[in-house]
């Protein structure tokens, strides 16, 4: 398997990458870890004319603390996030989630920025990104902005990113209690259903992935939760168009969403 011809440009800075996006428009795509992009190019489902490699841009692969947030560079690998003491100490549920992604090799190469921008409806991160109330820091030639997680995921492989913008970092509010539980699709091991639940001052916040065209914040569960996990979890798919596929019909998937929401809430203790 071999992709269609393209031009490869290694960007050495964010501004260079953005300049290339401006210049080439829709013909250009960003390459970070490559684990979503390259297979689709090999299958020739995706044939960008220009590939801009942002994988080695300095400064995008650090993890730091900024007051009440953990700030994760877009190029941080899943492995880096899973094993970072800063992440484990500040928002352990994110480290736990990163550990659930793919496999050892994929975690060594795949990045959080790439995963979020790709917005696979069954990806693991979105559940915890939503539940934690994270902000996605993006940059375009017009400048920087941050997008609330709840505004970021718009549909299947669709995000609020403009075509000339790139993710530079994710700001994840610190939290102490949190859990991510997933029912894996047996072939891909992506989430048929993944539920992240995090304790907060007013109760819990819950993010669900795999269930619908894009991950969502299960606000109906959050407002219904008063300590009775089962009762609250019954609202897991309220107002949601639940996906059905070869591995889980929409009926079964809706059921799993409730089961995993209940389990996640119970696991919070």
């Amino acid at each position: 398997m071999i992709p269609a011809k393209f031009e490869y440009i290694k960007a050495s800075s964010v501004s260079e990458a953005l300049g290339l996006l401006d210049k080439h428009g829709d013909e250009a795509q960003l390459l970070s870890g490559g684990h979503s992009l390259i297979p689709t190019m090999k299958l020739r489902l995706n044939q960008p004319k220009v590939v801009v490699d942002i994988g080695k841009i300095p400064g995008l692969n650090s993890i730091s603390e900024d007051g009440s947030n953990v700030v994760i560079g877009a190029n941080c690998t899943h492995h880096q996030i899973a094993t970072s003491s800063v992440v484990q100490g500040g928002v352990n549920v994110l480290a736990q989630t990163a550990k659930e992604i793919g496999d050892i090799q994929v975690r060594n190469k795949g990045t959080i920025g790439g995963s979020l921008a790709h917005a696979d409806p069954a990806a693991d991160y979105p559940a915890v990104i939503l539940a934690s109330g994270a902000k996605i820091e993006v940059e375009g030639s017009g400048g920087k902005r941050t997008i609330d997680a709840t505004d970021f995921f718009l549909g299947i492989f669709e995000t609020a990113l403009e075509s000339n913008e790139m993710i530079t970092a994710v700001h994840v509010p610190k939290s102490s209690g949190g859990v991510y539980l997933k029912f894996s699709q047996p072939a891909s091991r992506f989430a048929v259903v993944g539920c992240a639940a995090i304790k907060n001052d007013s109760g819990v916040s819950v993010g669900l992935t795999g269930v619908a065209g894009c991950a969502y914040r299960a606000s109906a569960v959050e407002s219904a939760y008063n300590g009775d996990a089962k009762a609250a979890a019954a609202h897991a798919v309220d107002g949601v168009e639940v996906m059905g596929d070869n591995f889980a019909s929409s009926k079964y998937r809706a059921h799993l969403a409730k089961v995993f929401t209940e389990r996640a809430l119970n696991a919070l203790g």
Binding site: G55, N108, K109
Partner: peptide, 12 residues
């Protein structure tokens, strides 16, 4: 680190 070399470009 162990990686899957089919999904990495040589140029990377």
């Amino acid at each position: 680190k162990a990686v899957k070399s089919c999904t990495i470009l040589a140029v990377q």
